[in-house]
């Protein structure tokens, strides 16, 4: 069966500096794939190449069988990839409702469903996004990505820098999405939380895939070797 997301030997550069040296991964529909690796190993860059925010110079990036080469970012997003970027990055001056409205595309996800997933947002609808707490902004970033009704949700460090109680709230939301059959590519440092949701994992080191397999097969030895835990 054609994987929903397929990367094969992807290479990419930031100007003259090579950042990816051969990333390979496959994500099937309905699957949760954890993209792992220490800091600076190319996880966010890999996501940038998937969204075409950074052009890959070699290899192949396909989504639902469509070659994303030379496709502009907005078309990639419209194909059905919803990004929750690192550092939240909501549209600060726009209100919560406006942040959600601006991303809305036809599908089952609407504002009411987002509020059911993250009830905190309900009371903040008219508030400018920049005045929300970090956790609420993260919930809004996830909500905004879901409003695009994506086939694939990409979470890049969705819980970084948040208070433990807020992280729990966000992970609960992600677990709910998984149970609903949402395909997710997730980058995070919390092995325990990833273990609870991820079907498979891919580990990057120095911009290349060095390990991939079922999450259950990720032994402490492998984690220690590539993730330093």
């Amino acid at each position: 069966m054609t994987p929903l997301l397929h990367l094969r030997d992807v290479t990419a550069f930031y100007g003259p500096v090579q950042a990816l040296f051969g990333v390979t991964l496959n994500l099937a529909e309905g699957e949760v794939l954890a993209l792992m690796g220490r800091n600076g190993m190319g996880k966010t860059t890999t996501i940038a190449t998937v969204l075409r925010l950074l052009a890959h110079s070699g290899g192949e990036v396909r989504f639902a069988g469509v070659d994303l080469h030379a496709m502009p970012s907005h078309r990639v997003a419209r194909l059905g990839i919803g990004l929750v970027p690192e550092g939240r990055r909501c549209f600060g001056p726009l209100s919560v409702a406006e942040n959600l409205t601006v991303a809305a595309r036809p599908g089952p996800w609407d504002m009411a469903r987002i509020c059911a997933l993250f009830p905190r947002l309900q009371d903040r609808m008219a508030q400018p996004a920049k005045t929300l707490s970090g956790g609420e902004q993260q919930m809004l970033a996830i909500g905004r990505a879901l409003m695009t009704n994506p086939r694939l949700l990409v979470l890049d460090e969705a819980t970084e820098g948040l208070a433990p109680i807020v992280r729990q709230e966000i992970w609960a939301g992600v677990r709910h999405l998984r149970a609903a059959g949402q395909s997710i590519l997730v980058v995070d440092k919390s092995l325990a939380e990833l273990a609870a949701i991820a079907d498979r994992a891919v580990i990057l080191e120095r911009g290349a895939t060095v390990w991939s397999g079922n999450f259950a097969d990720l032994t402490p030895q492998i984690a220690n070797r590539y993730l330093g835990v």
Binding site: S73, P85, G92, A103, R144
Partner: peptide, 16 residues
Amino acid sequence: QAARQNEQRAAAVGIR
């Protein structure tokens, strides 16, 4: 307004 604030971020939610 979203595209004015950040073009890449806007493109990532499907805005041209």
